[in-house]
Design a protein around this nucleic acid. Structure first.
Length: 713
DNA sequence: TAAGGAGGTGGGTCACAACT
DNA sequence: AGTTGTGACCCACCTCCTTA
């Protein structure tokens, strides 16, 4: 299809366009006409759904070069490439909007109200589902839908907001229903209010209120202690306020006049008045620039987006810092942020229109604050930060994702309830604009999000290296069990995860990845490359000192528990426990790092622990190791193999049944599937998390010490 | 070099005012 | 009343910078 020919065909309009293109700039008017001509042509020839590919028409000279030649085809064509379909959808949407606007032009007046109601319903539905999630009761849903319609009415008609004093409205509703049933002669307004609060369905049919497009009337919103009244003009509002006042008086409650406010909107504009003078006092108008807080959201003629956002962000950050300054451990700090700080933002989800950028900004700020408090290494992976702990993440909730999920939840709620309530249905209709669709559930979205985030993390060349390697060796729940069970400080947690992410400042990293150094070898032993796994488990210079201490800490933790089991005296505090070479009483004998004299010559005869249970005639040979995470399984097999000779010798010499138990914990927290099974074989109660914690603390100490050393080169 | 963050760019949408 | 022009805003995408 040649665009130029097309323009020539369509007469004077086309000729003008051609002229303009050749002369220089195309005016917006002509550009639009241009698009209309092209789109009309395509839809005429290829139907409503087509694929179009836009190609530069290089054979033309001058200005025409930058304009387009379009290859259009019906969408069934298999040749349509990805690009083509992308373009097509773009064009299609363009065209759709064009046509829509044309058609809609006739209904301009309707559109205006549509837009108003669109926004209104959006906000309303959000609030609706929020309440609903809290109460999931009929009342809640009703109120919600009412709020929706209320919002819709806001722009088009006058509106006044009014809040009765808290307890008044609460008790009023209760008492009102009682009184109404008791006294048939009670005044009409009383009856009306009682209906409002006790029989929601009738309340909607009352005379007063703002009328929606769907013919329903709405005259108030009530949630707990917040009451809002709506009327189609000032008089109605006065009448409604009067109703509330009468009730308040009846039950001896006073109007909290200073907490009430009114707003009159005429033709979409706020009309400021002196306020409403009543015999009990004056209800003043909502002041310009100020707002009125309804259910925690600052509102004026509409939600005060900017103010709410700023306030929410400030409070969020304040709470975030508060949590991080606390003495909670890493896991609980994350939980506290999720349940104490984050809801400040998520409460506004669906009511306030957060942009993607704003939410990402909040996330960035969060990470910055975390880093400032030592809770996140600046080079650590951010996708991992937001993954659940059982997937290897740190269990923080991403603000953006949480808000998205919240909105999805609201949509889901409205979708399921729309059949039960005409007002909710109205909200749904506004939101979908007639396009029926099945919203995906919140749960499914969450699952999808976790999967995708995890995939991104795993695919990263550097950060994804650890999970890829370690998950080949052991199961996820064993590799990451330390994150949920050890109760480490958040700083230690950050250090360990940064080490797993290969994000620490090692010489190998500097040389091979940053290329700022030329010497990748270890600063201590100068033999191997200075990688994380080298520092944590393979450096010869550290073997006799730091590794030994880590190893002994772990072994002595086991020793202490064994001693407790056989009623030996132990220090009350674990870290003060100093194992003796030999402990013996009538129940058992415990050897610590003891070289066993054997008749036959053998290499491995000095295990970390030998426990001889005298009663059961069982000897347990325990050996502890903290290898690099990728070696745990191999190490475990090696240990068992290594002590087989000794086991047989012990059986023969001491006339007991002997077994070898390896306790292998990865330096960065991974463990094998067998760890729990092995621990059960050792007398006493041994918990894997305690051992993991001992290993990780030792390891964090090693990393800190090592990386703090001056670079020799 | 990997990753995150910041800023720029182009395209799209929307609201509003001016014009026809 | 309908059309057109304009600016604000948003978003996706890209590039560049920074940091380790």
């Amino acid at each position: 299809m040649n665009v130029r020919e097309l323009l020539v065909e369509c007469g004077s309009v086309g000729k003008d366009i051609i002229l303009e293109i050749e002369e220089g700039e195309l005016t917006r008017k002509s550009r639009m006409a241009f698009v209309r001509v092209v789109v009309a042509h395509i839809t005429k020839n290829f139907g409503d759904s087509y694929a179009a590919e836009v190609i530069k028409y290089t054979s033309l000279q001058g200005k025409w070069q930058s304009y387009l030649r379009i290859n259009a085809s019906a969408t069934t064509s298999k040749q349509a490439s990805k690009q083509a379909s992308k373009q097509a959808s773009k064009q299609a949407s363009k065209q759709a909007s064009k046509q829509a606007s044309k058609q809609a032009s006739k209904q301009a007046s309707k559109q205006a109200s549509k837009q108003a109601s669109k926004q209104a319903s959006k906000q309303a539905s959000k609030q609706a589902s929020k309440r609903a999630s809290e109460r999931a009761s009929e009342r809640a849903s009703e109120r919600a839908s009412e709020r929706a319609s209320e919002r819709a009415s806001e722009r088009a008609s006058e509106r006044a907001s009014e809040q009765a004093s808290k307890q008044a409205s609460k008790q009023a509703s209760k008492q009102a229903s009682k009184q109404a049933s008791k006294q048939a002669s009670s005044n009409a307004k009383q009856a009306e209010l009682s209906q409002m609060s006790s029989k929601p369905s009738k309340r909607r049919n009352s005379r007063q209120g703002y009328k929606l497009k769907s013919e329903q009337k709405i005259n108030h919103l009530l949630y707990m202690d917040d009451l809002k009244l709506y009327g189609k003009n000032e008089k109605e509002i006065e009448a409604l306020i009067n109703t509330v006042r009468i009730f308040s008086t009846d039950i001896s409650m006073e109007f909290g006049l200073d907490k009430c406010a009114r707003q009159i909107i005429q033709r979409g504009k706020v009309k400021l008045t002196e306020g409403l003078q009543m015999n009990i006092g004056k209800i003043s108008d909502v002041q310009l620039g100020e707002g009125y807080k309804y259910l925690g959201i600052l509102q004026n003629m509409e939600n005060m987006q900017k103010e709410v956002k700023t306030n929410a962000t400030i409070t969020y950050k304040k709470r975030l810092r508060q949590v991080l300054r606390s003495k909670l451990n890493g896991q609980f700090k994350m939980q506290a942020i999720n349940s104490y700080a984050l809801p400040v933002i998520t409460y506004t989800a669906g009511i306030i229109d957060w942009t993607k950028n704003e939410l990402e900004e909040v996330d960035r700020k969060t990470r910055k604050i975390l880093t400032m408090h030592g809770a996140l290494h600046p080079r650590a992976d951010i996708h991992r930060l937001y993954l659940p702990r059982n997937c290897g993440g740190r269990g923080l909730h991403e603000v953006r994702a949480t808000v998205d999920l919240e909105c999805a939840g609201i949509t889901e709620y409205i979708h399921t309830k729309k059949g039960e309530d005409p007002l909710i249905n109205a909200v749904w209709q506004h939101q979908t604009q007639g396009r029926e669709c099945e919203p995906s559930t919140r749960k499914a979205l969450k699952k999808k999000w976790v999967e995708e985030t995890r995939e991104v993390w795993m695919q990263k060349p550097l950060h994804g290296q650890y999970p890829r390697e370690v998950e080949e060796i052991t199961k996820k729940e064993h590799a990451y069990r330390w994150t949920a069970s050890t109760g480490l400080k958040i700083e230690t947690e950050a250090l360990i995860t940064a080490a797993q992410d290969q994000a620490l400042n090692t010489k190998y990293h500097k040389t091979k990845i940053l290329r700022v150094s030329t010497y990748p070898k270890c600063r201590m032993c100068k033999l191997s490359d200075e990688t994380i796994s080298h520092i944590t488990s393979a450096c010869q210079n550290l073997a006799g000192t730091l590794y030994l201490k880590r190893h002994n800490d772990l072994a002595s933790a086991i020793h202490r528990k064994v001693c407790q089991n056989y009623d030996f005296h132990v220090e009350p505090v674990p870290w003060q426990h100093k194992p003796n070479l030999v402990e013996e009483n009538d129940k058992a004998k415990i050897l610590w790092d003891f070289e066993i004299r054997t008749d036959r010559v053998m290499t491995a005869r000095r295990p970390d622990l030998v426990i001889i249970d005298k009663g059961n005639k069982i000897a347990t040979i325990v050996d502890v190791a903290v290898p690099s995470d990728t070696n745990i399984e191999r190490k475990e097999r090696e240990k068992i193999e290594k002590y087989q000779d000794l086991r047989l010798e012990v059986q023969r010499m001491w006339d007991v049944k002997a077994k070898v138990v390896p306790v292998v914990v990865g330096a960065l927290g991974a463990s094998t599937q067998n760890l729990d099974k092995h621990l059960e074989e050792i007398p006493g109660i041994h918990k894997a998390p305690d051992l993991l914690k001992a290993a990780l603390l030792g390891n964090a100490h090693i990393l800190q010490r090592f990386l703090d050393l001056p670079d020799s080169r």
